[in-house]
Amino acid sequence: MTTIPHVPMRALDTLWFQVAGTLCNIECTHCFISSSPTNRSHGMLSLADVEARLREARELGVREYYFTGGEPFMNREMIPILAATLKQGPATVLTNGMLLRKSICRELRELIDASEYSLDLRVSLDGFDRESHDAIRGAGVWERAMIGLRNLAEVEINPVITVTEAADGIRSDEGRARFLDLIRSFGFTKPRLKVLPLFRIGAEEKRTRAYADWERIDIMNESDAEVLQCSSCRMVTSKGVYVCPILIETPEARMGSTLAETLRPFPLRYGACHTCWVEGVSCRT
């Protein structure tokens, strides 16, 4: 029998919010939680929900906050939620860029100027052009993401462009250079790019394949486990607090209702854990 390695909870540095639940305005073929316009597996978080966890996070000394979905800007309270968060620490929002209208961008600019902490927007792209991007994200998505990026550029918010390995050649120098050129074409003189691997769960499991049985972590020292983000993060959804942003559709990954209840080791028995381990993944910016 194989022993399942456990990741210790080193310190709660990073707190994630599944702020739009699994609701999204698009349906990407690689989404590891199959977010879509109809997926209500996890619900929206209200400002009050977020504030309750922020209070707890302040006591625990959390360093930074991340917001994802679904599409966070589908949450009508997103701006007040960010305003509350930025009083307490730095924040990052993961978005597909499609709802970044001029008025929202102006509000984001005001939040940035008013806070002593950093606010980062992470905009997801899956191709250098309409054809490759829309093949993953759906027809018309490229066009709207481009408008969102132009609106950000107009208020001088320099986003981090996040690209998954579904994008052709992104791990090569040439592929990176093409993306950096694309980012510069909006007038961003300091292009920022982050590449993420794919998780073979959710929609991605159908697009390519599921994890094989051998794709599990077998041996690990506790000190090695400290590089895993789950040693320093937790994820808040409408259903409770989960170990990490990836495993929210794994019922056993729900660790409690409050942050304090989840500050304990977690067994790394899932295929996605293997991806984080071998790829050295961090969902942080």
Partner: peptide
């Protein structure tokens, strides 16, 4: 440790 990503609650925890 950057200023804009080192909020007070986090620094307080470290001092403790």
């Amino acid at each position: 440790l950057w200023r804009s990503t080192s909020p007070d609650p986090f620094l307080r925890r470290m001092c403790d």
